[in-house]
Amino acid sequence: MIYSMTGYGKSVLQLPTKKITIELKSLNSKNLDLNARMPAVYREKELVIRKQLANALVRGKVDFSIYMEVTGEDTSSKINKPVVEQYINQLKDVVDGNEIELLKMAVRFPDALNTVREEIDEEEWKVIQSEIDKAVSALRIYREDEGKVLELDFIKRIENIDTLLEKVIALDPERIEAVRERLLKGVEELKEKYDENRFEQELVYYIEKFDITEEKVRLKNHLNYFIESLNTQDSNGKKLGFIGQEIGREINTIGSKSNYAPMQQLVVQMKDELEKIKEQLLNVL
């Protein structure tokens, strides 16, 4: 089973005096790149949150946000009455106006409001932390669903490469014969006498340089190993990436040795399928 690094999770918690909304967004990244935004009151818990998310999400570019909306009468800001009254008295000496208009002006001045720093209620925090777990679970479900789509695409691409490899294997005897005939024709065009035994020896040596038997076997093994790794319990995008590199190495070697246009066309198609796999592997956890 594989997981995508793309995901989204959200959870909403209604407390007696506030509404807490938790959002998680995740994209692909080589490591865990976590960006956290939260109200100042919860900032002291940031390290705890980061550890909680790192253990659950492992990798990815993750945006974590806590939004707080006050819904009750409780507020951290209080009117500083003595200061506001002084502002109003001073304003009366400067302008004429009714009490309401002067009050509107006074509350805009510095120190008109006292902001009391909230302290985290630990019982409340436990509930919020549990809600973060719910958002993480929602994101993991999203990642799992995306992973299933990726897995189907990988299987399709690997099967396509395997089918093309079978065509390469079927074409190989024809390729060797074509190389042999091309070399023989070239020698005959020289219109010079030659030692046929020596020519056969040189021909065998030359053709051996173009032998792709080992590459075909290794490529087949790598394709099977890729599918086996997809079916393991843990998602390991890096491991699949390494296998993809080995697949590419064998395909490239077959292409460099083929020396035969029909086979090179099949190699180009295999490379195209592999490139699509590599692009998608960047998003696997």
Rank of each mutant, 00 (worst) to 15 (best):
residue 111 D to P: 09
residue 230 L to W: 03
residue 40 A to P: 07
residue 119 E to F: 05
residue 13 L to G: 05
residue 22 I to Q: 04
residue 187 V to A: 14
residue 199 F to E: 10
residue 221 N to E: 04
residue 242 F to D: 04
residue 220 K to S: 15
residue 231 N to G: 03
residue 139 L to R: 06
residue 209 K to M: 08
residue 120 I to A: 07
residue 274 L to W: 00
residue 279 E to V: 04
residue 190 L to M: 15
residue 231 N to Q: 13
residue 217 V to Q: 08
residue 76 S to E: 14
residue 42 Y to A: 00
residue 223 L to W: 11
residue 61 K to P: 09
residue 133 D to F: 12
residue 177 E to D: 14
residue 31 N to K: 12
residue 130 S to R: 08
residue 224 N to Q: 14
residue 42 Y to W: 12
residue 285 L to F: 09
residue 268 V to I: 10
residue 162 D to Y: 06
residue 63 D to A: 13
residue 40 A to E: 15
residue 54 A to V: 01
residue 63 D to K: 00
residue 101 E to G: 01
residue 31 N to F: 14
residue 143 R to W: 02
residue 69 E to N: 11
residue 204 V to C: 12
residue 137 S to A: 15
residue 254 I to F: 04
residue 202 E to W: 05
residue 233 Q to D: 11
residue 97 G to Q: 01
residue 118 E to I: 03
residue 83 V to Y: 10
residue 152 L to C: 08
residue 28 N to G: 03
residue 99 E to F: 02
residue 201 Q to V: 04
residue 17 T to G: 12
residue 132 I to Y: 02
residue 214 E to Y: 00
residue 147 G to S: 00
residue 234 D to V: 11
residue 260 Y to C: 06
residue 277 I to G: 05
residue 60 G to S: 08
residue 17 T to P: 01
residue 31 N to P: 02
residue 138 A to N: 09
residue 67 Y to H: 14
residue 81 K to N: 10
residue 25 K to N: 09
residue 146 E to C: 11
residue 236 N to G: 03
residue 208 E to F: 08
residue 249 R to N: 10
residue 5 M to Q: 00
residue 283 N to L: 02
residue 224 N to L: 14
residue 148 K to H: 13
residue 98 N to L: 03
residue 101 E to N: 14
residue 105 M to C: 07
residue 218 R to A: 12
residue 161 I to V: 06
residue 144 E to P: 01
residue 64 F to C: 01
